[in-house]
Every structure is written in C-alpha cells, then in structure tokens.
C-alpha cells in the first residue's frame, strides 16, 4: 500500500504539468484578446500602450516561448501574475481557498449526512409516500439552480424570519479573525472568540445548505439504489434467516456495502465543488475560488485561469487518491498494489 501511494503521489506532478499544458494551449488559441481587460477598451487603439502592455505581460513573444517561460516558472512554484488583480495568482488562490474549502467541507458534511439518511429512509420504505417525498426533495436539490435556491432561503430565513444572517462570511462590520487555518469557524475557536465563532457558524449555514442540497440529491439517490441492490443479495437473506434485526441488517450489513460506491462520488463532488460553487459564492458574497474563476474567465486572465485549473486538478487528484485509500480500508477485498 505504501509503495502504491508513493507511486500515485509521484505521478501527480506529471499529470498536473499535462493539465497546465493543455489549458495553456487552449487559452492561447482562443480568438478573444486579453488586452481588452488589461489596458481597457479605449486604449486598444493606442499602439504605444498596447505595445507596452504586451511587453509587460510577455504577450509579444511567440507562443512556444511564452509556454517555455510559463512552465519554467511553474516548476519553481510561480503561477504567474494575474492580469486583473496584478498580484501573484498563488497569493490570490491562497487568500480565497480557505473560504471555499470551509464552505464545501460544510456542504459536503450536510450532503453526506442527510443524503445517506434520506437514501436509507427511501430504500427502507421504497414505493411509499416517504420514498416519493425523498425523491422529490432530492430532485429539487439537484435541479434547482443555486441562485434560485440561494435567493429563496435568503428571503425566508434572513429577510422574513431573521433567523440567520445574510450574505458574507461574517457581519459586514466584524473584523476577520487572524489567519491560522483560514477557516473562520476554526480560527475563531482557536482565538477563543466564541461570539465570532457563533457568527461564522451561522453565516455558514445557509450557503452550505444550498450547496449541500445538491449533494443530498446525488448521495441519497445513489445510496437508495445501491441499498436496494444489496437487499437482493444472498447474504441479506442469510442475515434474515439468522434472525438479525431489520435495523442491524440495514445499518450494518447492507449499508456497509452500499456506501462503497458513494465514496467515489463524494470525492468527485468535493473536487467539483471546490471550483464549481460559483453561483452559491456569488449569491452569498462568499470570497472564494469560484468567484475568482468566473472573473478570470470573463477577463481572459490567462494566469488566473490556468492557476484555478491547476487547483482543480490538484483537488481531483488528491480527493481521488483519498477516495481510493478509504475504499481500500472499507472493502477488505481491495488491495492497493
């Protein structure tokens, strides 16, 4: 297993270089001109400014030369400088990543917890009202656009009922806790600031629920389907013949097996949410990576686009590896080698 992990980790940089190369080439092949966002539309007709900008950002060189330079910098851990924020892409991502990580982790916890619960409930009461309600709820979660669901819950729980705070990670006038992990819920606790912890937690509930609702949809349907598969297995019949309680049969026997395919899906979902939580981040003014990615694409901010893509690649590779390890632990038949 150790050897297997070592190889998997060793291959990662190569894969990332491949990803970076593809995104670099694709971005350079787009017909649109990034100079618009660098110098502004008005200055496009001014050859001096355009030439200066091109030289400043290295866009006057041939694409192979640009590629070679980018790769050389990348190997030194330099993702380049954003056209729009004028800051190193790495710092931009470093600043935004914790917000997104905190949001997606919370969303994933909600999604898995409620998704598994709902899936078990639906499977145990298949083709009854409970099953139909669960299906409807899951369908809503995966098909309602986040901007709609987000606005809906903000309207209900923030404007009307006032139970939960509005957008943002903290109240507008509150000061951010000093960064330790970047997770506000963790950092406030580490600073011993319970009041801010409560605020951070309350701010997290709505966006995490909106994002997690979609995960509930995916997970609950998957758990229901694989549980029903397991119910038809011979070992379930045997467990019944041995007089085990129905609860034990479902929770210990069937669920253990049914959760195996869920591991992979949850890992994928997590990686996907890291860069794909755009709409939710937008609605809740969440200063995360998703927002950054959209801005970067809109402005053809090449370094930022590639940076976000590499981050997404890392997320997929790492979560997949973690999923494989968990899988190997959960299923004794699988040996990593």
């Amino acid at each position: 297993m150790k050897r297997y992990l070592a190889i998997r980790v060793a291959v990662m940089p190569l894969l990332l270089l491949g990803i970076a190369s593809i995104v670099f080439i694709v971005s350079r092949l787009t017909p649109a001109n990034p100079l618009v966002s660098i110098v502004g539309e008005r200055n496009l007709t001014n050859p001096t400014i355009v030439a200066a900008a091109k030289a400043r950002w290295g866009l006057d060189q041939s694409i192979p030369v640009q590629y070679a330079k980018y790769m050389k910098n990348l190997l030194h851990g330099d993702l380049g400088t954003s056209f729009t924020t004028r800051r190193p892409v790495l710092s931009d991502l470093w600043d935004r990543l914790p917000a997104t990580l905190e949001l997606t982790t919370a969303a994933l916890c909600i999604g898995v917890l409620f998704g598994v619960g709902l899936g078990v409930l639906a499977a145990r009461h298949r083709n009854t009202l409970i099953d139909h309600v669960a299906r409807f709820f899951a369908l809503l979660g995966s098909s309602l656009p986040a901007f709609w669901a987000g606005l809906l819950v903000l309207y209900i729980f923030y404007s009307r009922l006032g139970w939960l705070p509005g957008p943002g990670r903290l109240d507008p006038r509150a000061t951010e806790p000093g960064r330790i992990t970047g997770f506000f819920t963790v950092d406030t606790l580490l600073h011993g600031d319970l009041k801010s912890f409560k605020a951070a937690l309350l701010h997290l509930i709505l966006p995490a629920s909106v994002l997690g609702w979609g995960v509930v949809g995916i997970v609950s349907r998957l758990v229901r389907a694989s549980l029903l598969d397991e119910f038809s297995m011979e070992y379930i019949k045997v467990a019944r013949a041995m007089g085990l309680r129905e609860r034990t049969i479902v929770n210990t026997h069937a669920l253990r097996n049914a959760l195996l395919p869920t591991i992979t899906i949850v890992a994928f979902t997590f990686a996907f949410l890291l860069t794909g939580a755009v709409l939710t981040e937008k609605i809740f003014s969440w200063p995360g990576v998703g927002n950054y990615a959209v801005e970067a694409s809109r402005k053809l901010d090449f370094p930022a686009i590639i940076g976000v893509t590499i981050l997404g690649g890392v997320a997929f590779l790492v979560t997949n590896l973690i999923a494989d390890v968990i899988y190997a632990i959960a299923d004794p038949r699988i040996r990593l080698s």
């Binding site: 070992y235 045997v238 253990r256 004794p332 038949r333």
Partner: peptide, 18 residues
C-alpha cells in the same frame, strides 16, 4: 436463527464480503 436455523446453497454469496 435461535430455534430454527437455515443455511443455503451458495457459500460464496451467503456471507457479507466486507
């Protein structure tokens, strides 16, 4: 399982694999 027990044909699938 306590008073009346039953075993089945296929031992390969009768036990929980995990």
């Amino acid at each position: 399982g306590a008073n009346v027990s039953m075993i089945f044909q296929d031992p390969m699938t009768s036990l929980n694999p995990v």
